[in-house]
Every structure is written in C-alpha cells, then in structure tokens.
C-alpha cells in the first residue's frame, strides 16, 4: 500500500486542485469566473491553485478580449490529462485495496 501511495501525484494533493482538473478534463476551455463559481473559491485561493497547476504544465492559460474586458480561460494540457488519469487510477487502486482489507 505504501508503494501505491508514492504514485499519488503531490501536485493534486489538494481537493481544490482535483476540482479544477475535474472541470477542465470534461470542458475544452473554462473562464476564470466560471471556475470560481463552480468551486466556490476566493480569488486568492483559486489563483494560487491555478498557478501551481500551470507551473506543472498541467493546465494552459489563454487570454483574450471579450469586447473591452480581458477574459482568461483555462484548459487541461495533454500532460495534465495523463497525470490526472494516473492519479485517479491510483486512487481507484487504493480504494480497491482498502475494500479488500475490510473483507478479510
């Protein structure tokens, strides 16, 4: 079990980061305010998690103008998707082991 835990990606070691990735893997591009609303986070909190994921190259950032307002949208990169999937696989394996343990 220890062995599997080391596979859990520390970049996702926070429920809000998992939340961000969950939204971005099922949507192409999502703007900042929608993310904020869906996750019910404060600006500072969301920005720091987005920055962390961006530094890992798990998400890509796109800035554009809608009328006169700048709009920032975020999308998952291929690397981000792969890492997120691996993380989910690990979680699944851990839960599987835990369930078998309970049965014994």
């Amino acid at each position: 079990m220890k062995d599997i835990i080391t596979h859990l990606n520390p970049a996702f070691d926070h429920r809000n980061r998992l939340g961000i990735m969950s939204i971005l893997v099922v949507n192409d591009w999502v703007d900042y305010n929608t993310l904020k609303e869906l996750l019910s986070l404060t600006d500072g909190n969301l920005a720091s998690h987005l920055k962390a994921l961006e530094l890992q190259d798990f998400i890509a950032v796109r800035k554009k103008f809608v009328g006169r307002k700048p709009q920032t949208t975020y999308g998952a990169t291929a690397a981000g998707r792969a890492a997120f999937k691996a993380h989910l696989d690990t979680l699944e394996a851990l839960l599987h082991i835990a369930r078998e343990g309970e049965l014994d």
Binding site: R15, G19, S22, I23, V26, N27, V30, L94, L95, A98
Partner: peptide, 20 residues
C-alpha cells in the same frame, strides 16, 4: 483516508457533471 478519497471522488464527479 479511504473516507477522504471517497469524498474527493464524489466531489469530483459532481463537478464534472455540473460543469459539463
């Protein structure tokens, strides 16, 4: 920990549904 992972998974599923 198992409880915590399960809670995370449930939350992620809800976010995926709600956002898409």
């Amino acid at each position: 920990e198992t409880q915590q992972y399960l809670a995370h998974l449930a939350e992620m599923r809800a976010l995926m549904e709600r956002s898409s």
